[in-house]
Simulated assay, not measured.
Amino acid sequence: MTVHTGGCHCGNIRLEFSTELEPPQTEVRACQCSFCIRHGSRAVADPNGRLVISVKDQTQLQRYQFGLRTADYLICRQCGVYVAAIARDDARAIVIINALDDRERFNREPVRVDFDAESRAQRQARRRTHWMPVEMSLG
């Protein structure tokens, strides 16, 4: 597996995205919800991969929720960078490639996706299938 590292701007949140997929072959998704649009979010996940999130100062970790409140959107309170989203009912996540050190390698044209019409059950099922396992380490 290849490990792609990154994190927020100030270094409080660190990311390790492990995958066997090569970045140019990895589907990049551009969610069209109002939150992701405002952040210029481009997300990836590998259901066979893994995301490890390490947080030095958890008081600087903002867990934002909206809509159906089925996921925590992780933002650094200190520098404001959106780094990942974690499903609330399952330890599965997406990583925001803008927060990865080698983000330019994920160069596929983003697929625009809109999940506003999904029910809670549909959203949870999609995430279980398409998002990846996540482990969080709080310092």
Rank of each mutant, 00 (worst) to 15 (best):
M1R: 04
M1Q: 04
T2E: 01
T2A: 00
T5A: 09
G6H: 01
G7S: 04
H9C: 06
C10P: 11
G11D: 15
G11M: 14
N12V: 15
N12W: 07
R14F: 07
L15P: 08
E16G: 13
F17P: 10
T19H: 05
E20K: 15
P23C: 00
P23T: 05
P24Y: 03
P24K: 14
Q25L: 12
E27I: 14
V28F: 08
A30I: 06
C31R: 06
C31Y: 06
Q32C: 09
C33M: 11
S34F: 03
C36M: 02
I37L: 13
H39C: 02
G40I: 07
G40F: 07
S41W: 10
V44S: 08
A45S: 14
A45Y: 01
D46W: 12
P47C: 01
N48A: 13
L51C: 00
V52G: 05
I53Q: 11
K56M: 11
D57I: 08
D57M: 14
D57N: 15
Q60M: 12
Q62H: 06
Q65W: 09
L68T: 11
R69N: 09
T70N: 06
A71E: 12
I75L: 02
R77M: 05
Q78E: 13
G80W: 08
V81F: 09
A84Q: 01
R88K: 04
R92Q: 08
A93M: 02
I97A: 08
I97K: 02
N98P: 12
A99M: 11
D101H: 11
R103M: 15
R105N: 06
R105M: 10
E109Q: 15
P110L: 00
R112N: 08
R112S: 09
D114P: 14
D116M: 12
A117S: 15
E118N: 10
S119L: 07
R120W: 14
A121V: 02
A121C: 00
Q122M: 12
Q122P: 03
R123K: 10
R123M: 02
Q124P: 01
Q124C: 11
Q124S: 13
A125K: 04
W131C: 05
M132D: 01
P133M: 02
V134H: 08
E135M: 09
